[in-house]
């Protein structure tokens, strides 16, 4: 059975500002969440390789737990669950929910990147009198960064896509804008297809940027 739906693309031109504003909202949300994810993830990644068993256990628990639950459930828990005790703005809940969730994946990427550097590098650095932190900063992290960058870009692409879930807790983003346009116009096919294209442009741009960075690092080497 074919439903009697005729396409009408004028909805896109008419609501273009609304949808483009959605892009701005999603980009802003993603960038802030990425910053949270990097800060939390690098810290947790370093904690995971700590020799202090309590610190590394706590970091491992964080990573394993968040990697084992759905993002949607985590967002609901933050906004509605934690939100029943403290007054949480939906944007704040969105940024922290997305960032802390992605941070668990970033932590694993950081840990794997650091552990991929041969042990002899740390030993050479420590033998020359560098402290652990100096060795990390000047010897280990610059090398690990090259290996971390590609999977990190993949993680951030996933974050941009996953950010659409905040619309479920009425976080303002591209998906919520698209839903609002559809509520006003009933043009589901056109609006969702165009919205998908907008998401693709964002993620494709980020993946091209990551390839460019990778090439730059390779040549320098």
């Amino acid at each position: 059975m074919i439903a009697g739906y005729t396409m009408d693309w004028r909805v896109i031109t008419e609501y273009l500002p609304v949808l483009l504003y959605g892009v701005v909202l999603t980009l802003r949300l993603s960038v802030m969440a990425i910053i949270v994810a990097i800060v939390v993830g690098v810290f947790a990644g370093l904690c995971r390789i700590s020799r202090n068993p309590i610190i590394s256990f706590l970091a491992t628990a964080y990573v394993e737990f968040l990697r084992g639950i759905p993002l949607l459930v985590f967002l609901m828990f933050i906004y509605f669950g934690v939100g029943s005790f403290v007054n949480l703005d939906v944007q704040v809940a969105s940024v922290f929910g997305l960032g802390v969730f992605a941070g668990a994946f970033v932590a694993e990427i950081v840990r794997a990147g650091i552990e991929s550097i041969p042990k002899g590098q740390m030993e050479a650095a420590r033998s020359s009198g560098m402290s652990y932190l100096q060795a990390m900063r000047f010897i280990i992290l610059p090398q690990a960064l090259r290996r971390i960058l590609p999977p990190l870009a993949g993680q951030f692409i996933a974050l941009i896509k996953d950010s659409s879930l905040v619309s479920v807790i009425s976080g303002k983003d591209l998906t919520l804008q698209a839903r609002n346009v559809i509520i006003a116009t009933f043009r589901s096919f056109e609006v969702w297809l165009f919205t998908a294209a907008l998401y693709f442009i964002m993620t494709f741009a980020l993946s091209q940027l990551s390839h460019a960075l990778e090439r730059k690092f390779k040549i320098e080497h």
């Binding site: 041969p118 002899g120 009198g129």
Partner: peptide, 27 residues
């Protein structure tokens, strides 16, 4: 105490000169 390793353990992201200067400069 200088240490020279069987597998050199040079820092691959630094030039020969930088390998030699990094510890004197930073440490």
């Amino acid at each position: 105490i200088g240490f020279v390793f069987q597998h050199f353990n040079l820092y691959p992201h630094l030039t020969a000169l930088q390998n030699v200067t990094i510890a004197p400069i930073q440490v």
